[in-house]
């Protein structure tokens, strides 16, 4: 079980949901390149959404909400056996990550808006698979970065992400 301050299970599950919904068309290496991009997008989304230890503690206590509405939108067959991890999916983080994957400029703004506190602890972090994908990355993530395909998920919570980034920009 993760520590109270640890978002890694939520990040891993939400990443997995995005990869199931927008699978790579390539082989194993492409799948890993796509996973890196999705994981970085979800990490940025979760760090924005849960910026301090109290947020993370509450999330761990109450649960991230699960993938029910996302699965409905994506038309996922939820009768499949491996449903346990879906309870760790965070709908808002998935939606914000979809916004970031569709728009590298917005992703760069989101990375700039990360608070220097809890998660980064003063360390520099480079999310370049998200913000500056190379040809191999893009080739591996054709569906995962397609704005039209991402829209139903991205639109769910896009407004709150833009609000948050606008507020962060004004405060800077």
């Amino acid at each position: 079980m993760p520590a109270v301050s640890d978002l890694s299970s939520v990040i891993a599950a939400t990443t997995q949901w995005l990869l199931h919904a927008y699978p790579t068309t390539g082989r194993a290496f492409s799948a890993e390149l796509a996973r890196a991009q999705a994981r970085q997008a979800v990490t940025v989304a979760c760090w924005l959404r849960y910026p301090d230890p109290a947020d993370v503690a509450l999330l761990m206590l109450l649960g991230p909400g699960g993938a029910a509405r996302l699965d409905e939108i994506a038309g996922t067959d939820t009768t499949e056996a491996d449903t346990a991890w879906r309870t760790w999916v965070d709908e808002v983080a998935a939606s914000w990550a979809a916004c970031l994957l569709a728009d590298p400029e917005l992703a760069a703004d989101a990375v700039d808006a990360l608070a220097p506190g809890t998660h980064i602890a003063g360390r520099p972090v480079d999310f370049r698979r998200l913000t500056a994908p190379e040809e191999l990355d893009r080739g591996a993530a054709v569906l995962l970065r397609h704005p039209d395909l991402l829209a139903p998920v991205a639109d769910l919570h896009r407004a709150s992400l833009l609000d948050l980034l606008g507020t962060a920009r004004e405060a800077a």
Binding site: Q16, L62, G63, G65, G66, E91
Partner: peptide, 21 residues
């Protein structure tokens, strides 16, 4: 991704739990 469900959320609906958070 975890292979066990988040404790206590199996019976909760996603929307209501997110709203509580």
């Amino acid at each position: 991704a975890p292979t066990r469900p988040h404790p206590g959320v199996e019976s909760a609906s996603a929307g209501s739990m997110a709203a509580v958070v």
